[in-house]
Amino acid sequence: MTEFKGRPGSAGQRPTGGDKAVATQKKQYFRRKKVCRFCVERIDDINYKDVRLLSSFIAERGKIVPRRISGVCAPHQRRLGDAIKKARNIALLPFAASI
């Protein structure tokens, strides 16, 4: 448990590869401005049947990707969570995926 992914301190330093360099005094790292995909692509309907869309917002283990990582805005993340949970209920998405 030495390497703990997604801790608040380490979240900002992930090298996401971006267009803008954010320079701090000690360390220089790149951070891309995150945008909500649903806002940008104007996806109104986050449907539980749309497995392809939803599966891009679940992690390897089947967890819902937090919005600090994915950049989804709060209203959309709420609907996304609901949709993913519905999809899990009807076995379209896993509750816990193996590896």
């Binding site: 899990r88 076995a91 379209l92 998405l93 896993p94 509750f95």
Partner: peptide, 14 residues
């Protein structure tokens, strides 16, 4: 027929 994301009543697809 689709593959289920997890096993339901011993079935892997439905």
């Amino acid at each position: 027929k689709r593959r289920l994301a997890y096993r339901v009543d011993k079935y892997r697809e439905g």
